[in-house]
Design a protein around this nucleic acid. Structure first.
Length: 807
RNA sequence: GCGCGGGUGGUGAAAUGGCAGACACGCUACUUUGAGGGGGUAGUGGGGGAGACCCUGUGAGAGUUCAAAUCUCUCCCCGCGCACCA
């Protein structure tokens, strides 16, 4: 009875589809569970990262089914994006043809893994019946003033001829083509996510079942900080330069201020100064650089003196005004007060350019506050105020509050809350995305496309040359329209939406994927949402999750839903590495899941990937581990042979029964916290125990084993279940239960330590009294020799576990 | 630079204050009269010992504790994220 995985896997994959076992509908009275994995970009082939993500999700889905939940587990494709356009340029094909081919391919591969998806709910974001609702949502946002246009200096990739969000710039280069990114001024569409900053920040508290790490990243990204805006007057002028700081306690140590190169006052300040030429050269150079300049270690702190001075309002000191590219126009007021003694970046800059310093906070152990020149680095910690006028002697945290209030009272500054979060640029000068449903009319201006005219469809044909902006702008029949308001000639917006827009609400679409009255059916969403368990890569910890949270809050405000947060539980899985590196085409270290499936079957791949490491951490791909997984499958399979001999077998072994119940308990607990690796190892132990007891009645234990492995290796489990004489699909069979009474042990082994070192063990009745235990231990020959008459200073008893004798 | 993870045998990893290395991979020996990534049994952190056993050991160092892989501090290294965030 060979284990023919190919035949078995095909058989059950077919059966699941034919009997529609994973097709669900909202059924009131039935407890629901919505499990979602981040849908893939259809690049063509699935990679190990997908396999890991979806295997984790599938195992949990099947477990939830067996627990009696009505489980929604959908799959779709995040199908818009630049690779399709690049493929069109390169291969003289069309983005839609390329994309749909890739989707077909990937769907095939996902099916071969035996994942429990309700395929009837599949969506692709590039279908007009999906992106129509992107446009609908955009129009709603436009009505609310949440979608607006502004001119803004954006990252511009010459190679891709497109704007890039800051998020899309990696090491000063385009995140796709890696080429250097410059800047360009364009009228762009933005979404006013900043209107939601308080709620996005406050509601993080609701997300108790998200990893702390992700909460921390989101929190830092939104970046609420309380501080003071301080007003510096330009010397010999009425011009005021506002500066935001959270370190107002260091204001007496501000020895210069620095403006961003884009600061509006820069040109005025330098004009007519001897430094003007040099300053202009520096500014022009800085403006050409992309906005995202990440500090490499060897990057010098570059900057120039403007020739102007301003007045530090707390002590009327005249301090120089500099320009430097380490100050960003986008953050704060585009100007900073520099305190080199207490900010490391300012310190490095001051050293480089020979600027003055003053210590204003004394570290707890350091008395010398007169010689800043001997410092080797800035002191950023807490301490006592010095050289700070009336605030001398106060602990700086206390001074922080007092100084803020004093500034507010005297008008030197104003207490302000500052947020880091900026509005979201969604315009893309690309073809393969959702057209922004806006029309420009010479008479009426910006006119939204009427709802009844949606969707604004992408044209069938467009020239894909890769040059000179978006292909859409060259398609006449798309471009030329009549104004919906006045009927005169007008043109369409040719920008398309960033694909993050598409994925910010797909989890809602899955609840009613064919609904044609609105993006989603309120009633369906009411039943299924929120997503009970969301699973995906850590790389989406900020943007995708933040945007999805933003959309959810927006829908709530529209009255379409009644919850604040879309994802109750979040699991971020680790990456799959090969030889310590991420698998990638460029590194040439990709292991194709398909080749593993051919050789060993999907169940083996699933088992291996779950067994190799806990889901949250990176896992190292080691092919040798596959053999072990394959062996375990065959070993489990062979249990059938022994169970066929069952009839003759005498009673069940009590030890085996005990092990069985213990295993059920442990596996259940492990699954609840996604510890698949230890869950599997416990099942392995149970199987080992069955083999030890194969001469007794093992029927119950084998059946239990089949149920326990069902989430991990479902094809094999279904086949075994059937051969054991059952007819139900496993997801409809209840998850096994354990008997608490059988878990109790009559005796326990207690470890005996002397001075913390393991010296002996003793087996005693489980309920033994402490005094009796003490007697027994001290009577042990070995223990007597170790103690050798020294007085026992301490005798620590940890019930049922351990004794430590201190002598 | 900032933020977040992590460092345990030859390998993937267990153990989250209480027996370090569960479960696997690999390796070694034996075994099964049928080879080719078959099954079974035993062994396997390092050092010492014929042996019962002993010493030692979780990146380095210090601390807390009866007891530390686990908690605290300093340092080193690796990975990931980021908008030099004032």
């Amino acid at each position: 009875m060979e284990y023919d995985f190919k035949k078995i896997e095909e058989k059950w994959q077919k059966a699941w589809v034919e009997k529609q076992v994973f097709n669900v509908s909202a059924t009131s009275g039935k407890k629901k569970f919505y499990l979602l994995e981040m849908f893939p970009y259809p690049s063509g082939k699935i990679h190990m990262g997908h396999v890991r993500n979806y295997t984790i999700g599938d195992a949990f889905t099947r477990y939830k089914w067996m627990q009696g939940f009505n489980v929604l587990h959908p799959m779709g494709f995040d199908a818009f994006g630049q690779p399709a356009e690049n493929a069109a340029i390169k291969n003289k094909t069309k983005p839609d043809i390329w994309t749909y081919k890739c989707i077909d391919w990937m769907r095939q591969e996902l099916k071969k893994m035996g994942f429990s998806y309700d395929w009837d709910r599949e969506v692709s974001t590039c279908n007009s019946d999906y992106y129509k609702w992107n446009q609908w949502i955009f129009l709603k946002m436009f009505e609310q003033g949440l979608a607006y246009k502004k001119k803004s200096s954006v990252n511009w990739c010459e190679s891709c001829e497109t704007t890039l969000a800051n998020e899309e710039v990696v090491d000063g280069g385009c995140w796709r083509c890696k080429k250097k990114v410059g800047q360009k001024d364009l009228e762009q569409w933005f979404l006013k996510i900043t209107d939601y900053k308080e709620r996005l920040f406050e509601d993080l508290r609701q997300l108790k079942d998200w990893p702390d790490r992700v909460i921390a990243m989101q929190s830092n990204w939104i970046g609420k900080s309380e501080g003071v805006e301080i007003y510096f007057r330009l010397e010999g002028s009425d011009e005021i330069i506002p500066v935001f700081t959270t370190r107002q306690d260091t204001i007496f140590g501000a020895t210069y201020i620095v403006l961003a190169p884009q600061h509006p006052l820069v040109k005025k300040i330098i004009s007519g100064k001897p430094q003007e030429k040099e300053a202009l050269r520096f500014i022009n150079k800085a403006l050409k650089e992309s906005k995202v300049v990440r500090s490499a270690e060897d990057v010098k702190k570059e900057g120039v003196f403007t020739g102007s001075y301003c007045i530090n309002p707390v002590n009327n000191e005249k301090i120089p005004v500099w320009i430097a590219d380490y100050v960003l126009m986008e953050y704060g007021t585009g100007a900073i007060m520099a305190v080199p003694t207490h900010d490391q970046r300012d310190f490095l800059f001051a050293k480089e350019h020979n600027l003055p310093m003053r210590i204003v906070i004394r570290p707890p152990r350091n008395q010398d506050t007169k010689s800043p020149e001997i410092l080797t680095e800035a002191y950023e910690g807490d301490g006592i105020q010095v050289n700070s006028g009336q605030f001398d002697g106060l602990p700086n945290q206390e001074a922080k509050k007092k100084i803020a209030q004093w500034m507010q009272d005297t008008g030197i500054g104003q207490i302000k809350t500052h947020w880091r979060l900026r509005d979201w640029l969604i315009s893309r000068q690309r073809f393969w995305g959702t057209p922004i449903p806006i029309i420009y009319c010479e008479k009426c201006g910006i006119v939204p496309v009427p709802y009844e005219d949606l969707p604004v469809k992408l044209p069938e044909e467009a020239p894909f040359t890769g040059r000179g902006g978006s292909p859409l702008s060259k398609v006449e029949e798309f471009l030329k329209v009549s104004c919906p308001k006045c009927g005169s000639g007008a043109t369409r917006e040719t920008d398309t939406m960033a694909t993050f827009f598409d994925s910010s609400w797909y989890f809602l679409r899955f609840c009613s994927p064919r609904f044609d009255q609105a993006p989603f059916d309120k009633e369906e969403v009411k039943y299924w949402m929120p997503v009970d368990q969301y699973i995906g890569g850590i790389e989406h910890a900020i943007l995708h999750l933040l945007y999805s949270r933003f959309f959810t809050k927006f829908f709530k405000d529209l009255g379409l839903i009644d919850f604040d947060e879309p994802f109750s539980h979040l699991l971020t899985q680790g990456m799959v590495l090969k030889d310590g590196e991420v698998m990638s085409k460029s590194r040439g270290n990709i292991v194709d899941p398909d080749s593993i499936i051919k050789k060993y079957g999907a169940d083996t791949l699933r088992l291996y990937i779950l067994f190799a490491a806990p889901p949250e951490v990176e896992m190292e791909w080691a092919e040798s581990g596959i053999d072990g997984a394959f062996r375990f499958l065959k070993r489990t399979w062979r249990l059938l042979e022994y169970s066929s001999k069952l009839n003759k077998a005498p009673n069940q072994s009590p030890a085996l029964e005990k092990k069985m119940h213990r295993t059920i308990k442990e596996v259940t607990e492990d699954l609840e916290s996604f510890k698949f690796n230890t869950a599997i190892s416990r099942i392995m132990e149970l199987v080992n125990e069955i083999y030890q007891n194969r001469d007794s009645d093992i029927e119950k234990a084998v059946k239990t084993t089949v149920l326990l492995v069902a989430p991990f290796m479902p094809h094999l489990a279904e086949e075994m279940w059937q051969r054991l004489g059952n007819t139900d699909f496993l997801i409809r069979v209840g998850w096994p239960k354990y008997d608490e009474k059988l878990l109790k042990e009559d005796t326990v082994t207690i470890v005996i330590q002397i001075n913390g070192k393991l010296r002996s063990k003793i087996e005693v009745p489980a309920g033994i009294e402490e005094e009796r235990l003490k007697e027994l231990v001290l009577a042990q020959e070995k223990i007597r020799q170790w103690i050798r008459g020294s007085p026992v200073k301490n005798f620590i008893v940890i019930p049922r576990k351990l004794i430590n004798i201190v002598v």
